[in-house]
Design a binder for these strands. Sequence first.
DNA 1: TTGTACGCGTTATCAT
DNA 2: ATGATAACGCGTACAA
Lengths: 339, 339
Amino acid sequence: MKSSKTRPATKVTLGMVAEHSGVSPSTVSRILNGTAVVSQEKKDAVDRAIAELGFVPNPIARVLAGGRSLSVGVVTQAIDSPYYGVALRGIEEVLDAAGYVPLFASGHWNAKEEQRCIDTLRARRVDGLIVLTGRLSDEALRKLGKELPVVVTGRNLKASGLYSLNFNDFEGARLATHHLLSQGHRKIAFISGDPVHPDAQERLRGYRAALEAAGVKYKPALVLPGMFHEESGLMAVERLIDSREPFTAIFAANDQMAFGASLALYRRGLRVPDDVSIVGFDDLAGAAHSIPPLTTIHQAGLELGRCAAQALLDLLADRKPTAQLPEPRLIIRSSTRGA
Amino acid sequence: MKSSKTRPATKVTLGMVAEHSGVSPSTVSRILNGTAVVSQEKKDAVDRAIAELGFVPNPIARVLAGGRSLSVGVVTQAIDSPYYGVALRGIEEVLDAAGYVPLFASGHWNAKEEQRCIDTLRARRVDGLIVLTGRLSDEALRKLGKELPVVVTGRNLKASGLYSLNFNDFEGARLATHHLLSQGHRKIAFISGDPVHPDAQERLRGYRAALEAAGVKYKPALVLPGMFHEESGLMAVERLIDSREPFTAIFAANDQMAFGASLALYRRGLRVPDDVSIVGFDDLAGAAHSIPPLTTIHQAGLELGRCAAQALLDLLADRKPTAQLPEPRLIIRSSTRGA
DNA sequence: TTGTACGCGTTATCAT
DNA sequence: ATGATAACGCGTACAA
């Protein structure tokens, strides 16, 4: 029985291919990696042998011998993050198309764990690294970049072997706030993210800039601390309501907090958008199907992943990365309306 | 300057540890792997040398030499799935605690891609495999189990080297439907999942069983096809409303479709739960913060991941896995009320 | 209990 | 352009 499925039943090695096609192992290796010019004649013979034998190179042996592993490490913060999850998909997509395999590891927003991830990944000899908005110091990242190609998001570092990709959080927040302002809202609450996070600071800046541009006085009582998750958004609004500080709109520094905020409003009998308008940030998958569909700032997670992977591929191929993230866009849905 | 951080600046090998402690490489290896009994004296010397040199075994070389890779392949369907995402976190968590590293790959609900993932993972010499509800045939899985330890979810296969973990979808659906019934609902629509999916069939069975037990006649016009995503839930309800088939409650085969259904209701001016009650299935992270908070069947994704990983660890250690998934539980929130 | 020698499958170096 | 040979770092027979 001749099986058309070419999956190696018994391990077939490069050496066997060499023998089968009457050339030396080195030649086979050269053909596989395009390391040197080989006569068309031998190339054909080897290709045929590879097909006949169903040979698949052993990536383990390859890397031990000093070759590339064709794998890249991706350190994210939580493998199940609704935002970064889609970024991972983007990374997977473009890496796969280029023959690379992603190795994911989660740092859990903890510099120490993150360092452990990186150590593990490097022990596994990844060819490069993508770090999604980590807690590591810029210095540590810079040093890392000297040792292997690295792409980081959420930073603005520049160095050879290190490429940064950053969203314009400031502009996104400005856009969101301006949208509310343009609809006549003046008492706009802001649910901030974890201040440790640079993104959170930028978004606060954007909020303030929009206010200022519109001649609306910034009121500290209207900015509530949050932690980027639903519960914190909910509690922020509860506190806000209890404080009796009047407001007609809320801008949450991310969608998850916006969801929590909506729920708090719902519980207090306040209607969105009739009683209060609300805008989020990120445009998570769920934003379009929340009730009401959430007006938000689109921060393309998928694009983020794709760009990061593409940039790393460039670095790996000794090309200069040019990937740029798209500018944030306001997505108007149904959670906002005139004051 | 003496750095307390013990990260190998220069690669330190097992051989160097051997030399540094005056023993042979084999002895070091034995100590590392507990392969044989070694005198306490040498053991201490080696341990000291390891600490002093900051030695970290090279996993690549280790596996090439025939040892374990301490990595396990995890094939999921989409790296950004809201349900499986948390399962991945559970897997990561228990694997990590045992010194294993997960390698994630996405099959995208496609048997061919799934097979590719498995081939890649095996080429990377994973010690075992976790397959989350794949499209692969039972036969293929059985064969795989003969070659390396495998844990699958969403199936009921039994074989040595192969462990299955399955939720009681039937019971979950029965519970959900019964809840609606017990509140006086009689015209209960069911938004089904993709029928290709065994889970979807089981849930339909559970729905019918509950109906029958309550003496309510099953009405085909009340079951709408869905595809497990929001949009399909939304369209299902639109069709249902347009069909003018009366209904007072909806049971969606998963939360995502329930969200979509809620949105359709909202758009048509129908209130949840005042006009129609709705219950979902899965208990996604977002279910608790949707508006209104969704009554649903808790299918512990985190537990699923943990159990799968634990079972694989057992298999790997030649223990008999005993992990069992918890029974589905009804989580009553605010999307359901009396008819 | 411990050490020696070899092999894992590939790439890199150095010849030719 | 091609081949022989030596690594890569570790595990494991086998011998002692």
